[in-house]
Write a protein that binds this DNA or RNA. Structure first.
Length: 327
DNA sequence: GATCCACAGGAATCCTCGGGGT
DNA sequence: ACCCCGAGGATTCCTGTGGATC
């Protein structure tokens, strides 16, 4: 029931799966595939499809290295590079920080093993996107890039970078519709719940709350099941489902805010407490709220980060800009 | 329309941390 | 024990922008 669980049969996205498989097919002959870019809203199955396709591929191709890197967790170029290098060895002696980025890159350039496919998830969170250009030039290395919005990754590239990665094949993921979500949930029910614990109507109710986001849908099902178990009822009723909706949504939001620093969390809370707040007022409030407040400039950097994470939105520009919570 | 102000955000610089070499 | 190095964060410095005021 965990959201990372990859079902054996990904039947909900046949077109996307086969498209991605086609792109990756050259590795079966030892050739290098073109880089690909999966984009679309969260909970649309991008990560799931990428991992699944790669796993399938690995069963058919003897010589294949793969790696999954979440660029949110490894958001600097150095960290991402480290993890990419890690999967093909060569990192045992660089646990130290004092190894320069260039040396890691050099080792990767010297890589001459079998074809190597890297999934770079949430690549829009990668701070140093230049590194993608470096990856692209590594022989036998190909990338599957994943992000929510196309422009977050490709807009701020300089010309060189975007032209080099223009061959990148883009696959768009749309939100799941109600029926697809129900199918996904049925799958989980079969693996994780007693028969008859929940009927199709209940799943539809969950899918409706989830609004196209599979991660939310699965979270709802999980929490509803747990709640029902606590109440020692055998069926998951509509009331139970409705009761866990807000809990589940804050839980998912919590996962995002947990990754913020304490100062960033304070800022986020200040913004959620008001419906609109300007930069000056916000800084005053922030200074009152914490000891050792950072500078204004740093706060602006934090705000930019919160925007990137889609936690807040900025309205208007320069002087009259206000910030408000999103979602 | 000239000037001032409040703010955004880019670039350069400073600071800190952890680890290696001597 | 000491110094040095590199990464990454924070700060300082700076330029640009749009609204307000005269």
């Amino acid at each position: 029931m965990r959201s990372e669980f990859v079902p054996n049969d990904v039947k909900h996205r046949p077109a996307e799966v086969s498209h991605l498989s086609d792109i990756l097919r050259p590795v079966t002959k030892g050739n290098r595939p073109e880089p690909s870019f999966l984009y679309g809203p969260s909970g649309a199955g991008k990560t799931c499809i990428a991992r699944h396709t790669l796993e399938q591929l690995q069963q058919n191709v003897v010589d294949l290295n793969t790696q999954y890197v979440n660029c949110w967790e490894e958001h600097t170029g150095f960290q991402t590079l480290y993890h990419v290098l890690d999967a093909v060895g060569n990192t045992h002696d660089i646990h130290r920080r004092s190894t320069p980025t260039d040396e890691l890159l050099q080792r990767l350039r010297e890589y001459d093993g079998p074809q190597y496919i890297v999934i770079l998830d949430e690549v829009d969170q990668l701070e140093d996107k230049e590194i993608l250009y470096d990856f692209h030039r590594i022989q036998n290395l190909s990338m599957i890039l994943i992000a929510n919005r196309e422009e977050d990754v490709f807009s701020d590239f300089d010309g060189r970078l975007s032209s080099r990665l223009q061959t990148c094949i883009r696959i768009r993921f749309n939100q799941y519709d109600l029926d697809q979500l129900v199918t996904i949930l049925e799958d989980r029910v079969q693996w994780g719940l007693e028969q008859g614990a929940i009927e199709t109507e209940g799943l539809e109710r969950i899918a409706d709350h989830a609004a196209g986001d599979a991660r939310v849908a699965i979270g709802l099902l999980r929490n509803a099941a747990r709640q029902a178990a606590q109440q020692q009822t055998e069926r998951i009723s509509d009331d139970v489902i409705d009761a866990v909706v807000s809990e589940t949504k804050t839980e998912i939001r919590q996962k995002t805010t947990d990754k913020l620093t304490p100062h960033q969390q304070v800022l986020y809370e200040l913004i959620t407490d008001t419906d609109h707040i300007g930069g000056g007022d916000l800084y005053d409030a922030y200074r009152n709220a914490v000891d050792n407040a950072k500078t204004r400039r740093t706060m602006r950097n934090y705000l930019a980060k919160l925007q990137q994470y889609n936690l807040i939105t900025a309205n208007g520009n320069t002087k009259n800009r206000t910030y408000s919570a999103q979602g």
